[in-house]
Design a protein around this nucleic acid. Structure first.
Lengths: 108, 108
DNA sequence: GCACCCTATGTAGAGTTCCGATACAGTGCC
DNA sequence: GGCACTGTATCGGAACTCTACATAGGGTGC
């Protein structure tokens, strides 16, 4: 499973509450990813065993909308996603370097 | 300039101390990126005006090694890199979700 | 009926990015 | 000559991203 920014966004959205499954359109709004990016990411994550995909069991006519497909991280997905996101977070320092003032001039 | 993880790693390495230029092999070690990834990234960043590349002025024979090419963030690069990295950091939560115990059982 | 827009999931294809392999060149050692 | 090391850099195929587009049913307006 190669880590990319779209993958990280999806994992972060699902990891916010691993017990709470999300569906595609929901994840599109949460992550800001277009469907053409999101769905391939979800398929790759599923192929890697990091998440499961289950169709909602409703009657689309009665509900007045198409059935959703709910995605939920597996135990393995949770285990793998956390250190991966932590590594990303480690790239960016708490605060920017402080030897440059807001005007752009060196602080010395 | 599209933000990707390799780009972010390079920016993070250079942003750690924007006054201190780095050369290729140095950045390979700092970021863990292979040369086939790093150099294209550096070229893209240079094309975008985010960094400058200057050859070290030494005599390779006297120095006993090839000349290095030093890369340094421009003012624009520093300005652009900081919010870009901050955005990456924002994707990853401070701490993992706390409603799951180490055993995997829900905390409630 | 028909033109839209909304909720949903998903594919097609062009362009971009990644990364292992390879190239090039000089130094040092045996 | 052969091998290791320090450097920079490209090639090419695989992988990834993302703008369109496809599909399909519901609802609204005319």
């Amino acid at each position: 499973m190669r880590m990319t920014i779209p993958v990280a966004k999806v994992l972060a959205a699902l990891l916010a509450d691993p017990e709470d499954p999300r569906y595609g359109l929901d994840l599109m709004k949460l992550t800001g990813l277009p469907s053409g990016t999101l769905y391939p990411v979800l398929h790759r994550l599923r192929a890697a065993g990091w998440l499961t995909a289950d169709w909602e069991e409703i009657d689309p006519v009665a509900a007045g909308r198409p059935a959703r497909r709910y995605y939920r991280l597996t135990a393995e997905g949770v285990r793998a996603a956390r250190p991966a996101l932590a590594e990303l977070r480690a790239l960016a320092p708490d605060r920017g370097p402080s030897n440059v003032t807001p005007t752009g001039a060196p602080a010395w």
